[in-house]
Write a protein that binds this DNA or RNA. Structure first.
Length: 491
RNA sequence: GUCUCCAUCGUCUAGGGGUUAGGACACCGGGUUUUCAUCCCGGCAACGGGGGUUCGAUUCCCCCUGGAGAUGCCA
């Protein structure tokens, strides 16, 4: 039988690392096995649902290059949006009711709160619903419901015995039925199913063969198996993925830093870096390989190499991958990524002028090696397009020298700018080297103030190329300006 | 509290009854270099504890400890 897996997010927030990891693994597994990857929208929580989250889901999958074989608007098992399957859930809930495997519950939120409160106070071993309505006469309950009394439907979880399910990573997991959540709600007051019901019905109806989801779902595994049994269906295979944690060891969340894919996208990360890094969170290939393209993973992904232990998300390693993939990009595609950033930051105009484009083209090879995030481009080459707003003069003072030494160096260098562009880099280098010797200082000591003058900072792309791109005339003006400023300050 | 799961360098991980316990990030040195970065070389650094089983356990079993997750009319 062909593998059918799904990613079933609920559009109640932005797509985050954990969800995307689940999506990716399901997708890779489907591809590696020649099966189907299904996208299903679980929008049964009408209160938290919002359109932007749904749009964000589509944007994210598109950005990552993940397409689905079946999903909204595509495939034969639809609809793939749970809110459009409302009647189906009603039908199956009724079936459970008729079979005496579920019951109406009229308990109010207030009563439930009170029960919980009391259990907490008494440190009772039994937590959760007290099964108050479990033994209501079904005919009587139906009458109350039809009279309009608000109610939910709860599953009758067996009070004895135990339930086992097999997990591809963890092995068999067994739980006493008395430890399973006592009679969870399967249909809410508003008539919508809860996750448990909708999920089980859909996975069965859509012919899902493997459920790959995060380990936080392990506790509801037995519950779901009980539901399959109640319907007389065979449960799919389970595969619970290790959780993604933050630095402090708790489940990754906003307080650990960026977690939404939108943050990463806007923050200058490349999809190939994200995919590569995320795929190594709880999965490995062998003892040394670390670079994987999406295409590689579509071939190589296996359940066997999945890990059990949770993984801490390391922003620094992601950044390292990102730098690697920036350098890996072909020049034209990288430029196409960088230009809009420069425009958005007001470094170049929109549309870009020919002159700006020429400078950008010249600067490109210099910054390519230096970028870790695409968004760093503006800061890195702003000095080529905009005047320097202010100098931090201390940056211009080389080690073991005084600020008062600097204007002299700058002035004698300014003189060398004459004819700079006509000379080769080697010739210029020799010229500055000789000047340094003449002044009795090191090359570095001469170049540092110069660098600050021309680029505005002592960390910059290579100086001579920068001068060439900026133009010798402008460079000289900046050198003289800084010289004057320091001279004034050291008076 | 209860239930369940997990446990190799700081982090991601490989490995598995006998290994100098391997790789990567980070960090620290060194080289290339006009700064930074890239690149190259080198270094630091781990089997949580206690019992078994065994000729031999980091590896298998048990206990402890630690961590996490779940305990919702959220998924």
């Amino acid at each position: 039988m062909s593998v059918r897996v799904r990613y079933a997010p609920s559009p109640t927030g932005l797509q985050h690392i954990g969800g995307v990891r689940t999506a990716l693994f399901n997708y890779f597994y489907a591809r590696a096995k020649g099966g189907q990857f299904i996208l299903r929208i679980e929008d049964t929580d009408r209160e938290r649902y919002n359109d932007e989250s749904l749009q964000d889901l589509y944007d994210t999958l598109e950005w990552l290059g993940i397409d689905w074989d079946e999903g909204p608007g595509k495939g034969d098992y639809g609809p793939y949006v749970q809110s459009e399957r409302f009647d189906l859930y009603q039908e199956y809930a009724r079936k459970l009711l008729d079979d005496g495997k579920a019951y109406y519950c009229f308990c109010t939120a207030e009563r439930l709160d009170a029960v919980r409160e009391e259990q907490k106070k008494q440190k009772s071993k039994n937590q959760g619903y007290d099964r108050h309505c479990r033994d209501l006469d079904p005919a009587e309950a139906l009458k109350r419901k039809e009279a309009g009394e608000p109610c939910v439907i709860r599953l009758k979880v067996p009070m004895e015995g135990k339930t086992t399910f097999h997990d591809e990573i963890m092995g068999d997991i067994t739980r006493k039925n008395s430890d399973v959540s006592p009679d969870p709600v399967i249909v809410k007051t508003d008539g919508f199913p809860t996750y448990h019901l909708a999920n089980v019905i859909d996975d069965h109806m859509m012919g899902i063969t493997h459920i790959m989801r995060a380990q936080e779902w392990i506790p509801s595994g037995p519950l779901h198996v009980l539901l399959y049994q109640a319907f007389g269906w065979e449960a799919p295979r389970y595969c619970h993925l290790p959780l993604v944690m933050g630095k402090d060891g708790s489940k990754l969340s906003k307080r650990h830093g960026a977690t939404s894919l939108r943050d990463f996208r806007l923050g200058g990360y490349l999809p190939e870096a994200i995919i590569n890094y995320i795929s190594l969170l709880g999965w490995s290939f062998d003892d040394s390989r670390e670079f994987f393209s999406r295409e590689d993973l579509e071939k190589l992904f296996t359940l066997e190499k999945l890990n059990k232990a949770p993984a801490v998300f390391d922003y620094r390693k992601l950044e390292w991958f990102n730098g690697h993939y920036i350098r890996q990009r072909d020049p034209e595609s990288l430029k196409a990524l960088l230009l809009p950033i420069l425009q958005a930051d007001g470094v170049v105009s929109d549309p870009v002028t020919d002159k700006e484009m020429a400078i950008f083209d010249g600067a490109f090879p210099l910054i390519r090696e230096r970028l870790k995030l695409t968004t760093q481009v503006s800061e890195m080459i702003r000095f080529l397009f905009k005047e320097i707003e202010s100098y931090t003069t201390a940056d211009a003072v080389p080690k073991k020298m005084e600020a008062s030494d600097v204007p002299g160096i700058l002035d004698s260098c300014a003189a060398l700018l004459d004819g700079f562009e006509a000379r080769s880099d080697e010739e210029n280098e020799k010229l500055f080297y000789d000047k340094a010797e003449e002044l009795g200082i090191k090359m570095g000591q001469i170049l540092q103030p110069l660098r600050v003058a021309v680029t505005g900072t002592n960390i910059s792309p290579p100086l001579f190329e920068s001068i060439r791109l900026l133009g010798a005339e402008k460079s000289e003006a900046r050198i003289r300006a800084l010289s004057e400023q320091i001279a004034k300050e050291t008076l």
